[in-house]
Write a protein that binds this DNA or RNA. Structure first.
Lengths: 248, 248
DNA sequence: GAGCATTTGTCCGTATGTATT
DNA sequence: CAATACATACGGACAAATGCT
């Protein structure tokens, strides 16, 4: 159908991918070139097309692998649980604390928390994995007076929410968030193992105690678009009782 | 600094771009190749890197042009006005009605509107331009009983909201929306003038009358990520009076 | 650790196709 | 029709990362 050979090749490969489970290694560029009777450059273009479609992830020296892409839904009514979302999709979640340090609160985050800029805070840098592959990188900020003992507690428990619940007896809830796509700073690019610079999801968020309304912590999370699709559901105010929720 | 020559080249070009107004034509691949002493293939890779960073838009046979990228903020408190957003950013907005036809309401949209699948509706297909370049493509669905005379009114007025306000005396407000990135159907790809298949923004939305809460219309809008950045702001329920809004 | 094969990443030169001006 | 500019394609070479022996 298609007179462009690399797209033709990509179509065939894309169709074959749909039956392969995530993580499967696909044919190498040279094998594809041989099979379709094209040059390695054309075969490479085809695989790069699959990469642009977020269907595969490529690793130099290793190979090209089918991606597992997960829907991460953000809505007011849903508690944010990344581990559960990944497990529900059939993936194996893991998160690693990369660093915990104290740092004065930057201005933008301070005003989000309703604090003064420069107040002491914990900065918690964490990496999230799906099936052993990097998915996200997050910076979480918690004012020191909110949780002085964070340093020792954090390595034992998977989420800061959990620590807050147990040690402070609060119920953290997502009070505000902003989602977009950004080209992140080089530190984050390295953390996400991205080669060329490209946009990734950025979720900025603020947690408050659902009982008192006190601002507890805030975070910025960058996520690779080839491992998750972030969907934001927003319900408006003009809703009357008795009406059904907006359907799918 | 960078031993990868195409990235080195891309860095230099990217720095130069920041001082060029949107729409400026940049040097051709051959000129870049000559200037930096690299092959045309390497020059091409550099420009493609700029394209991946959403800094430029390429048009075969014409050239490579600096993109105007606009922030489109979706939040509960903001009336959705695309024309105003574009003008505020210094761009020239235009929208064109591509097609108006009657079609039975598809199931997913019917349930979003609280209607039965298959009810008669107007389907309004529209293209949005910024500075003469395609930015978005939308499908808007309005039940026929809501606005029987749509066919004649639509070409004179820029927005369906406007028509509803004038002819039905309702106040449309964004009642629900969902945002993500998708690889759209081929019709939309063509409408957005995308060559290779890649993900674009998809905003699904539902409008209700702010007075009665009646569902008025719903729409799906696809937007090129190189012309707009869609930002969703969500405020939660755990908000007490007297507290300041979440800062920037 | 060293060595090797595999695989992706970069780069060159050249040629031809296709859309725009 | 001609010139320009981007798009596709080929063949060849070497670099860099990975995985295994």
């Amino acid at each position: 159908m298609n007179r462009v050979r690399y797209l033709e090749t990509a179509e065939v490969l894309a169709a074959e991918l749909t039956t392969s489970p995530p993580g499967t290694k696909i044919a190498s560029e040279n094998e594809i070139a041989g099979r379709f009777g094209v040059s390695r450059a054309a075969a490479r273009s085809a695989v790069q097309e699959l990469e642009r479609r977020l269907l595969v992830r490529r690793v130099q020296g290793s190979g090209t692998f089918v991606s597992r892409r997960i829907d991460y839904v953000i809505s007011r009514d849903r508690a944010p649980s990344w581990h559960q979302t990944v497990r529900d999709a059939g993936g194996v979640p893991r998160s690693v604390v990369r660093e915990v340090r104290r740092e004065p609160l930057p201005g933008a985050l301070a005003s989000r928390l309703g604090r003064a800029a420069g107040e002491p805070a914990h900065l918690l840098i964490r990496q999230y994995y799906i099936d052993g592959l990097v998915a996200s990188w997050s910076n979480e900020w918690i004012p020191v007076d909110m949780l002085p003992e964070l340093d020792v507690a954090v390595r034992a428990v998977e989420s800061v929410d959990e620590i807050l619940r147990q040690l402070r007896n609060v119920r953290p809830g997502r009070a505000w968030c902003r989602v977009g796509m950004e080209i992140p700073a080089s530190e984050v690019i390295a953390g996400l193992e991205i080669e060329g610079t490209r946009p990734v999801w950025l979720v900025e968020s603020l947690s408050r105690d659902e009982q008192t309304g006190a601002a507890l912590m805030c975070s910025n999370t960058w996520s690779r678009p080839d491992v998750c699709r972030i969907v934001v559901e927003m319900s408006g105010r003009a809703r009357r009782t008795g009406e059904s929720d907006a359907g799918q």
